[in-house]
Computed example of a mutant assay.
Amino acid sequence: MIRVLIVDDEQLIRSGLRLILEAAGDITVVGEAADGAAARAEVRRLRPDVVLLDVRMPGMDGLAAAPDIVAAGARVIMLTTFDRDAYVHHALRAGAVGFLLKDTAPADLTAAVRAVASGDAMLAPAVTRRLIDSFAERGPSRRHTARRQLQCLTARELEIARAVGRGCANAQIARQLLMSEATVKGHVSRAMTKVGAGNRVQLAILVHDAELP
């Protein structure tokens, strides 16, 4: 069972998210909080696997609370009604591994929680391409540097890294390459360690920078 903490200053939104998540069957909402400060305390008390964290809240907002929540061992999905690039950048720098808009479909929300709990990163499709483009520094120098970083990967690790760069989750990669999801996860983890990527998004950006054929 995946343990989730919901953090949003609006009770109605928290209640709606709880109904969606608990209907999934394999997800339980262990608690709620209305601001970042309360969220930090609840994470220490409840030890959730995943925290759905609103970006904008009175008092301490989600971006300010995220580093401590990540440090406590929880995986963070930022939630917002906005898709401004600055929010995404701040969230990733704070250690978040997911970024979703609040109008995300219920099925996509539960899929994101499962993906993040299993070690994947999950970004709203509306912001993924623009995010990677904004991080990527174009030009021969950046391309050369990225390709040099990726040279340490085995052929299989590079193949899987390229799939991560296309936005594929572990389950998709496993189906495409006819291997177990656990094996894919191991390859992704080793690839991130070798190239110094803190999460899957950073690995995807590196692959994108390399402009591999």
Rank of each mutant, 00 (worst) to 15 (best):
R114H: 08
R142V: 13
L46E: 06
A23M: 11
A71F: 03
L206I: 07
L12W: 01
M57N: 12
T80V: 08
A34N: 08
V188W: 00
V30R: 14
A161W: 00
V97D: 00
L92S: 06
R166M: 02
H89S: 06
V195H: 01
H90R: 15
D26F: 10
V188Q: 00
E10C: 06
A146D: 07
A105P: 08
Q176M: 09
D61E: 11
Q176T: 03
L203P: 02
R166I: 01
L131V: 13
R44C: 04
R84L: 13
D209H: 13
A66M: 11
S141I: 10
L131A: 12
I27W: 09
P106F: 06
A33I: 08
R166C: 00
A197E: 00
I6G: 14
A117R: 04
R129P: 05
V70C: 09
G62I: 05
V127W: 01
L52I: 02
L150Q: 01
T104W: 04
P67Y: 09
H187I: 01
A171F: 02
A169W: 00
D85Y: 11
K102Y: 02
T81H: 05
G139Y: 06
H90S: 13
A37E: 13
R45W: 01
N199T: 07
T28R: 14
A74M: 10
E211V: 05
M57G: 13
L206V: 03
M192G: 00
Y87K: 10
V207S: 11
L5P: 14
G62A: 05
Q151G: 09
I27F: 06
G198Y: 00
A210R: 04
A37Y: 01
M60V: 14
D108W: 02
G196D: 06
A117L: 04
T28P: 07
P48W: 07
A64T: 15
R3N: 08
E157N: 06
I6P: 14
G139L: 08
V7C: 04
R14T: 07
A204L: 07
D8T: 10
N199M: 04
D68L: 07
V88H: 04
G36S: 11
Q176I: 04
R45K: 09
V50Q: 07
L53M: 14
Q11M: 10
L46S: 14
G25R: 13
S134C: 06
A163P: 03
V201L: 12
R114V: 02
A91E: 09
E157I: 04
S141N: 04
R3W: 02
R47A: 15
Q11F: 04
P48Q: 07
Q149T: 09
A204C: 06
D9E: 14
M78S: 08
R129T: 15
G16E: 12
V76T: 04
H144P: 03
A64H: 11
T193R: 01
